[in-house]
Design a protein around this nucleic acid. Structure first.
Lengths: 358, 358
DNA sequence: GATGCGTATGAAAGCGCTTTCCACGATCCT
DNA sequence: AGGATCGTGGAAAGCGCTTTCATACGCATC
């Protein structure tokens, strides 16, 4: 049906081995021969058979990217910039294809997709999103990743803690400074004068949740060793969706413990928090300050614009693409931490003066 | 290295042909044999080699999904629900992998990715997003799609007009009722009393832009045949990004032609419109009403919440997955049009009374 | 009991590519 | 000048699977 290598070879008057060589490089081919072959490829409209190539070479042009959910802007932006960086300007090397898998953060789904990708002989895999921190799961994950890496698949962990694999394996990690970001955000709130700061954390057991909460708590503690304890009752765990922030806030409100600021696990949750607060008649930021995390695009369009922490998703996607393709070598410790940045906007302000609004 | 079919066969005491048969079905296999084979697969931790399978079967488990940009929520949601529907409950058939490609809507990029997918022997391809309406491009696209379809690749066009291919080819189309949605949105504005309605359209030459603008114009015309002409100077074309809406609105404002409402190509553009309006001291909706399109998640969190038109992205993704896998047959005309729904929220209201605020 | 059919399995031929192994000139070097 | 070296290209052996084709068996049929 389709044009094959052999046909191109016949058309160019060379052996199929030669055509393969001009296609893949690595082996010297005379200029004139190369030209002839390239012309034959052009004339016949040859399109390489990926599966055949992958079978013979024991590695494919596929690169897997595991995300919690591409529909979530956080992952959409990450996956988007990753995919774009994977196919650089339509260059000859740019035939790599990104396979995106929604894992919902479920460990078994991650393992299943990795098995599929291993079966596809994926040239690389990038795992994004917080990791479920459970010994059994991470052991299984480490095992599978080690096996894939041993077989030559380049692995990049993005936004999750490194896994302990032998240093010889091609496994790199790109982290976000979640801890630092949460720390600076809490500091910002403290500086404004807030003391009763509620925190709507992400799902428990997730690395991201832990990092952000830890940074937050560290800032409180630094300010006043007793503050974390005082604020502990104001900390609730929820999901990463808007509704989780909404529900958590209603719950907080219902409990009646006073607070003058709410920091959320991410911007989406913060939107839910703001909605619940608004319904309860609280003005933002006059009555309660609200802060998010991630700095997703919509955070400038909320009312008021959301104070948040910028997470360099695009940069991470590009970096992950470079690492997973080998265009860039992993740094010495094989782990790169990308900085986060506090974005102060209108949703945070000094707390209302005591008794100014009961 | 990895466990192969032959090893499984040896372990189970059967031929590799038999193992292949239990794996793929289609051929009768005795119950006892099947059990033995399944046990061997389990014991050895066999993972099928995708490329080998694809090479032999001339079709792979890969399904391509072309989007303008997954980082855009519109496409992220579409691609996300599509991917999820592709891997149904980890079922045996659920080994299909989604390859997402950001085309930026550029025809040549679409063709390039299709070539790559053709080379990968993708089992299916879904093209999403408005199509660039240019004879040369659509001819090239039709040709490539026909060829792929002829080779057995199932094709789904989603959110773009059908292509004229022979009826025997497995090409289906899922459309959104953009025209109807835009029509009802304009009607809503008219009913509120607006007459000078600005329209920030998408890029010219794109099917989506045309459909939405046509629906909008049709509603104006229906109300008053002269209205479209009166509003024409208030129609500007821009991109689909927030900044495009911002810039377009500044331009509109600069021109000085009065308007009491702005309908935007989509929600993201509407956010830019609202920002520009706000900077210019216009209150929404008191001074100017603003409406978007798509009903992306953030549209309920803007200030005020955005009146828009819901586009059933999740439903479309699921449908596309069913069509592309053959789990669902295309309807008689091979085209399904999904309804859109007007979502009236706080950003639209009656226009200010004449002279009430100069 | 010979004939026929349907069912369950094996043998083996590829699928289209990569890659080792070799062969052949041409170019060096001493 | 002779052998070593280098650059270039061909032959052929797979890579791990699917899929005819052929075979063998069991059972109903006449």
């Amino acid at each position: 049906m389709a044009v094959t290598l052999a046909e191109v070879a016949a058309h160019a008057g060379v052996s199929s081995a030669t055509v393969s060589r001009v296609l893949n490089g690595g082996h010297p081919v005379a200029g004139s021969t190369r030209t002839r072959v390239e012309q034959a490829i052009e004339e016949l409209g040859y399109i390489a058979n990926g599966p055949a190539r992958a079978l013979a070479a024991a590695t494919s042009d596929l690169v897997g990217v595991l995300v919690h959910d591409v529909a979530d802007s956080f992952f959409g932006i990450l996956a988007g910039s990753f995919q774009k960086a994977l196919a650089p300007t339509g260059q000859g090397d740019g035939r790599r294809l990104a396979v995106v898998c929604n894992t919902e953060g479920v460990p078994s789904a991650e393992l299943d997709y990795l098995a599929l990708l291993e079966g596809q002989r994926a040239g690389g895999v990038v795992l994004t999103g917080g990791a479920v921190e459970e010994p059994h799961h991470s052991a299984a994950l480490t095992a599978r990743i080690s096996r894939m890496a041993l077989a030559g698949t380049r692995v990049v962990l993005c936004g999750r803690p490194p896994l302990s694999v032998p240093a010889a394996l091609p496994v790199a990690t790109v982290m976000f400074d979640d801890h630092g970001g949460a720390f600076r955000l809490a500091e910002h709130l403290l500086t404004l004068g807030h003391r009763r700061i509620a925190y709507v954390a992400g799902p428990p057991g997730l690395s991201t949740t832990r990092e952000r909460l830890a940074g937050h708590t560290a800032a409180l503690r630094r300010h006043d060793p007793a503050l974390p304890d005082a604020c502990a009752p104001l900390t609730v765990h929820a999901g990463f969706e808007r509704s989780a922030g909404y529900d958590a806030t209603r719950e907080l409100l219902r409990r009646g413990a006073p607070f003058t600021a709410v920091a959320a696990a991410n911007d989406t949750v913060a939107a839910g928090v703001a909605a619940a607060l608004g319904e309860a008649g609280k003005r933002i930021p006059e009555d309660v300050s609200v802060a998010g995390f991630d700095d997703l695009p919509f955070s400038v369009d909320t009312a008021p614009a959301l104070t948040t922490v910028r997470v360099p998703l695009r940069e991470a996607g590009v970096l992950a693409a470079q690492l997973v393709t080998g265009r860039r070598a992993a740094p010495p410790g094989r782990i790169t931490t990308l900085p986060t940045e506090l974005m102060v906007r209108a949703s945070t302000a000094p707390p209302p003066r005591e008794g100014s609004r009961p």
